[in-house]
Write a protein that binds this DNA or RNA. Structure first.
Lengths: 187, 187
DNA sequence: TAAATTATTGAGTGATCATTCAAAATTTGG
DNA sequence: CCAAATTTTGAATGATCACTCAATAATTTA
């Protein structure tokens, strides 16, 4: 067996930014060739298709997002403080000049008309995210409340992700988010 | 002057659905040829470019959306009732099987990396929508409150637009929206 | 009706699209 | 070190992309 020369993980990493910024359709294999340094043949030998590579990139993004999310949540002493930290981080991202939204949401909107496997994946992943928040919230709240709050939280996160393109002052987006979720205030 | 044979407005109307569903990049001139019955030459003679036609389609969608929004608002006796009707309509749209989100938001996310004129238009249009809500809310609330509530409302609307892809039961999305905006309850 | 003006045509432009594959290079097992 | 296995190559595939333009058709003006 011949050993692989290039690092598959590294290729996926460099491709994430491309797909994230431009979307699936607007990103060409040629651009992937330029960014990765691989030739078309190598890309297709390793990944099979543009769509399969896109799925790998999106999966890595999602897994990484959920991992980081849980890291913030699990290092917080208070449940609500953890959520607040998450929201604060999202708003901070939204205020960066090179902000390009949420890869998962962008993909969902772009591919919604196709009903492809990748689109189904975005649906499932966002549901998984909500479930993750619900589980975390049930540390503090009863099941009914955790359920309601998790959905509210998801909606506010969606809102931040989209509103983030609008350039308003740094603090305002976070403030409005906290107004929408009064139960986040522990005091 | 030779009289025009085809109805420009009608062409734009048939093209809206195409761009709305598939996005700018994924929609080809060939598809536009098929849908409108026009030949490529006619399309370019009349509209100049794919992007210009897209802009016309998006502008009509936006103008129409704001018109319909104001129609609902102005035929409501109470300010909050008007807003509730808007939200209810949006949720109802989101629950239709052929739901394809908000054309403006989809375009914003797709074109955000390009920083094109169309992208700038999406930013301005969504800002205009928020201003419209703020003006309406100031019928009932003082300026400060109208400002806060308009932003909250925009965020909830963004959230509905995105969450709408997830297939949850009909009532749940509206209920969560109303939970997020308790000031909508007049009683 | 004749001439001028404009709309429409549709085959054709070169560029770029995702993808392929036989050949070359590389690596490993014996 | 040789042979088998695997990776990598990169030119080439046909399809499709947005777009053009000289020719034709339709309409208006004079």
């Amino acid at each position: 067996m011949a050993k692989k020369k290039f690092d598959k993980d590294q290729v996926i990493d460099s491709v994430i930014a491309l797909f994230w910024q431009q979307g699936f359709t607007a990103t060409s294999i040629q651009q992937i060739v330029e960014v990765t340094g691989l030739k078309p043949g190598s890309i297709y030998h390793e990944f099979g298709s543009k769509e399969a590579l896109f799925q790998l990139a999106l999966t890595r993004y999602t897994d990484n997002s959920i991992y980081e999310m849980n890291e913030v949540l699990n290092t917080s002493l208070d449940v609500c403080e953890g959520i607040r930290k998450i929201l604060s981080n999202l708003v901070q991202l939204a205020n960066q000049p090179e902000y390009c939204g949420c890869f998962l949401i962008k993909s969902q909107l772009e591919l919604s008309a196709s009903n492809s496997q990748v689109y189904q994946y975005t649906l499932a992943s966002l549901q998984k995210t909500e479930n993750n928040y619900r589980n975390f919230l049930s540390r503090k709240f009863d099941n009914e409340k955790a359920n309601c709050y998790a959905r509210q939280l998801m909606m506010v996160i969606f809102a931040i992700r989209v509103y983030g393109y609008q350039d308003i002052q740094n603090t305002s987006l976070l403030q409005t988010s906290l107004e929408l979720l009064p139960w986040l205030q522990t005091e």
